[in-house]
């Protein structure tokens, strides 16, 4: 590593000239991003601008058409979707995806099951695979997302907002280095949003790099260190959140009057 590189902040994730096309639909096109360690990055953009597709490409669920993704400086496109958890990348989904027939505790444990370096690693093979214990990471994820008391509930018994917190808890139980959140506060009330924002900032202060997709502009301004504005699959503006949301191009393109009145 050269001296210049050593002094610069290390990019955790680097996306170069990414394209993801579905037939004729250019969901993501000529998109580049750089995420440094320990910061919260936001993505705003109208419906269909390619935000979820981008997260899908990073988590390897969606094949790339062209371009490069580097994680920790290493090419990422040969990594299989099921190996990203081992690289400590965790995500939540835009539509809540929880196992319907198991408890909140077991849903979150699913994340901890993937974690490396957990105390569980030191258990025997047998206990780790067939034991019915709950990892300490699960208890801490439950506490952080304020799900205490819900452990034995099943997803369908809880409100949408609470289900979303279970998704976040599952991602946290994986002990991630990079956390990708696809509209984590959709369906939550104002107070819950505030709680999630506070939680994400706490996590950032502990060094967790985050990429947050949200439509709530005020929350993005309150939460993010840096924001990318997307439209038609590519980044049209980036920088400090206050600047990006005031960018005339961004406002005219899709925030429209809604934001100017806010």
């Amino acid at each position: 590593m050269s001296a210049a590189e050593a002094t610069a902040t290390r990019p955790v994730l680097e996306i170069r000239d990414l394209a993801v096309h579905f037939g004729g639909v250019k969901a993501v096109d000529r998109l580049s991003m750089r995420l440094d360690e320990g910061r919260i990055y936001g993505i705003i953009g109208p419906n269909g601008s390619g935000k979820s597709t981008l997260l899908g490409a990073v988590t390897r669920l969606t094949p790339l058409t062209s371009g490069e993704i580097l994680f920790d400086g290493e090419p990422f496109h040969t990594v299989h979707a099921s190996q990203i958890a081992a690289k400590r990348i965790a995500r939540t989904f835009q539509t809540v995806r929880l196992l319907p027939d198991v408890s909140v505790r077991d849903n979150i444990q699913l994340g901890a099951d993937a974690a490396r370096g957990d105390v569980d690693e030191r258990r025997g093979w047998w206990a780790r695979n067939f034991g019915t214990h709950t990892s300490p990471a699960v208890a801490s994820a439950i506490a952080r997302t304020r799900l205490g008391g819900f452990e034995d509930y099943r997803p369908a018994e809880m409100s949408y907002g609470t289900q979303r917190r279970v998704e976040i808890a599952r991602a946290l139980a994986l002990d991630p280095r990079l956390l990708l959140l696809d509209e984590p506060t959709a369906g939550m009330n104002q107070r819950e949003r505030g709680e999630i924002s506070t939680l994400l900032k706490e996590l950032r202060d502990e060094g967790l790099t985050q990429l947050l997709v949200e439509h709530d502009v005020q929350m993005m301004v309150d939460t993010c260190d840096y924001v990318f504005a997307m439209n038609l699959g590519t980044v049209i503006a980036q920088g400090r959140p206050e600047d990006v949301v005031r960018d005339p191009q961004v406002q005219e393109a899709y925030l429209g009057k809604k934001f100017r009145h806010a």
Partner: peptide
């Protein structure tokens, strides 16, 4: 898909 994202092959 969820299974893959939590490291299951």
């Amino acid at each position: 898909e969820l299974a893959q994202s939590v490291g299951i092959s």
